[in-house]
Nucleic acid binder design. Structure first.
Lengths: 117, 117
DNA sequence: TGCAATACATTGAACTGCGAGGTATAGTGA
DNA sequence: TCACTATACCTCGCAGTTCAATGTATTGCA
């Protein structure tokens, strides 16, 4: 994950990162995730269902998540939880993100040092 | 720029952000920007010329940048510098980025608080 | 002469993320 | 009972970015 030619398309995959992070804490279902991201980010980040569901399906396909159906009040939900593989994936994405954010932060704030050509 | 329906496509526009930031400090030319981003980010971020030039052209078209040709050692360079409009644009992107990064950071680190349903 | 570095630029493909739309059930109020 | 909203799932096509690859031309060096 650190040996690609350049950047893996920069910050793509933030929804995936957030979803994995939420599922690390507790089992959740799609609709719930959409609202959790919105509320936990103080309305700063909003991902639609059109983003969340495809990501969940892809992660399950890659065995980073596993799902089980539960019916509650006659309402069927698909609960997702993390696998060990998903946990590893989260750790990787998390460190990628941190590196990137730090690099950008440095470029934005530091650098009153101009140059010494 | 802060009143879109949801997220302005998340973090798209990071190259633009970095380019504007560099040009805020000093006049630069395309090839130089490519290398400055790479070195100032400690090799964490690499943007190719295929990213930088289109961004420069677009920003100039929108009057966020202005350019002038200089020939040095028989080598022609196009130097870009920021306009007042570009400065405002940078301020906006910068604050957008900061909000986003903070929100993500909070979701990644905070939240041992699980829930209280 | 040949090669690498500099310096500009464009193009096509690939990938995300997004909004819009579609289905179905449960609860609420008229 | 009916209509409306909220819940809960899902898919499709568009739009916008980024990337690698490629092309041109010049300079300096061996």
């Amino acid at each position: 994950m650190a040996g690609k030619s350049t950047n893996p398309n920069f910050m793509n995959g933030v929804p995936e990162l957030l979803i994995l992070r939420l599922l690390q804490q507790q089992e959740m279902y799609g609709y719930e995730i959409v609202q959790a991201i919105r509320s936990q980010s103080n309305e700063v980040i909003t991902v639609g269902e059109g983003v969340v569901y495809p990501v969940l399906h892809a992660l399950e396909r890659e065995k980073a998540l596993k799902s089980r159906r539960k019916t509650i009040n006659g309402r069927s939900r698909v609960y997702y939880s993390m696998t060990r593989s998903g946990s590893r994936r989260l750790a990787g994405l998390c460190s990628d993100w941190t590196n990137l954010a730090e690099a950008i932060h440095t470029m934005l704030t530091g650098a009153e040092h101009i140059e010494a050509v």
